[in-house]
Nucleic acid binder design. Structure first.
Lengths: 201, 201, 201, 201
DNA sequence: CATGAATGAGTTTTCATTCAT
DNA sequence: TATGAATGAAAACTCATTCAT
């Protein structure tokens, strides 16, 4: 068991290279082959490191997938929150959210797929579930606020969020199939449609 | 390799018992633990058969998951198609579809989860992909017809369908979490919202 | 464990059919795939009987191979002995032996291969080894007699027999390859050569 | 599937130790128990390595037996060819060949038994069959040359070789039984007898 | 620090044998 | 008496993890 594992935010660079390479390789392979379907030696090879090296950065395979989940879900949350302006046109606000989701899915398609696929895996630990919880709460609060201001359709906010996020996941899945690119036009079109899911009428 | 594998549609009953027990156990465990995360002996135990028995009914584990996928996706397609009336009020038609999706997900929650989770797994074979294709084509044709009749929003039908199905998947996922039941009220509420995704305005 | 197993020399025929079919199938498959390489269900299929039926005639797979070995080695010994005339021209006597070996190998090529291949297998039991012993003793006595009468080369009779039998086995193996038939000409030619192995000069 | 399997001709020593240990153990056990009769864990134990280690050196059990066959048959061919002088007394030449066969069988009795036993096993691959072919061609050419020079008996060279090699195999089998040692006297005696198989008269 | 060869526990799969029919 | 579906013990093989270098 490594005594002091190199942290991701190390200052010196170089130390972190391998950790990042491992995480990147894991992201790809876990999406492609699944967690249990990915052998550590293969992962090591894809990352360009020795198999043993992985265990210098992560306690074991399970820890690795949990770190991966936590980091990316956090990153997604941060991304969605960034540039969020509380007041303003409700539709513009929604479209902003939809665009940020799209940005993220377009920029990190594998990471978005990873998050989506692993959202309820048996090997996710308490920490990962907590990140998950906070993410959902954030979303729910967003909806509740908009409902409180009379902008959004009434109803259980979790349900509304499930529909909106689900719709986006459907779009992202389809674009992952390679038969659709997330162009600005597609994003506008789908965002406009999704807006109707939530808007009060 | 079994020479003549017992078929599902056996006449005499009893022949099919074990096959069905294996499929049921696999459904549960593949959802719970994933395909690679499910060991065959565990599967056998859950099905109440010997480990070797599984190989009398399925060539190997991969064949098993593919049969499972094919059968359930087919069942879903049949279910969605059943009671579909071509002409009629567009919204009523949509709500009918949404209700049938809900029926299915409520009646077979594990199967619906299974289908949703495995939709693009590396171990699905050509036959499974074909079932998948036909399913999508069916959906696309439905959307196209409605668009042609001027009832639905214009735009790529696959995108519209991705949004609608995604929204429903989001709902189903959330209900699987145990914090929401798919009551008629929830179904009406969500269906009304989802209808807005597609309706022309 | 069958109480009274049907014997090979049953009078009524019919009873023996299956036993014979099993032995025939086993002969072929043990030569083709080896003893451990032959699965009992395959054997059953080739014999045209149910897998369980094999256990009505033989205690287990090992007993089967031992019966097979014993019966065929005995049959070979009987065949070689038949028509053996103690006095007479030594070369004619040798050629008679060589011809009878050839007859046997030509008439029962699979059985001859089986005997040859299994001559020292780990799963042969005491009874089979005893048959083996008697066979060798018979051969040795034949050689010793001929030596005593001054017709054969001096030297360890087992060695002489090993050379002669080995030479024939070499021939039989080659003919099994399909590139040579054991025609009367080939038998005469090889017998003449083999005769030189043993003849006194 | 190992990516880069350690090769036999490694420079640094030590690399090859385990590979050699595995091959040696396999040689013994395949002769003793047969290919299908030898379980990999037993093989590993005999070789003093972990079961998994075998798969670092050989793709599977079948590859192992094929490498074994190829290496030893090649070694036998090389040994028989070594010190072969084209011109010279025909009998001396034959006796030289017989002695080299004996040397080999005496020095590597298990390997000789292995080669002999596996000469036509179902699991030998194309490469092994090719080695086999080349070996036979070599033998045939040797006989043909001697025939062309009028030293050997006329007749199909493959048949003559089958008789000679068969005779030697008979001798080797018998000596393996433990009741005969391949002493120089036995080799001379048997060689003299075998010479009569082929010599022209 | 980094490695990758080595491992044995655990996986998938096979198969000799049994037994209900 | 004959069967072949069912089985679990044992086979072949994989892989997460360790550790000597």
């Amino acid at each position: 068991m490594p005594d002091a594992m190199p942290k991701p935010s190390a200052t010196g660079r170089g130390t972190t290279d391998k950790r990042a390479a491992i995480l990147d390789a894991a992201l790809e392979l876990f999406v492609e082959l699944g967690f249990h379907g990915t052998a550590v030696p293969l992962l090591a090879k894809r990352a360009g490191v020795g198999a043993g090296t992985i265990y210098r950065y992560f306690e074991n395979k399970e820890a690795l997938v949990n770190v991966l989940y936590g980091e990316w879900k956090e990153k997604l949350a941060t991304h969605l929150l960034s540039g969020f302006s509380p007041g303003g046109e409700p539709k513009a606000q929604f479209m902003g959210l939809w665009r940020r989701m799209s940005d993220f899915a377009a920029q990190y398609p594998t990471a978005y797929a990873f998050i989506e696929i692993h959202h309820h895996a048996a090997y996710l630990d308490a920490a990962a579930h907590e990140v998950e919880q906070r993410y959902l709460q954030m979303a729910v609060m967003y909806i509740q606020n908009a409902q409180a201001e009379g902008k959004y359709r009434d109803g259980p906010p979790e349900v509304l969020w499930s529909l909106v996020e689900g719709a986006f996941i459907g779009l992202a899945r389809f674009s992952r199939g390679g038969r659709l690119e997330l162009t600005p036009e597609v994003i506008e079109f789908s965002g406009n449609a999704a807006w109707e899911l939530v808007r009060r009428r």
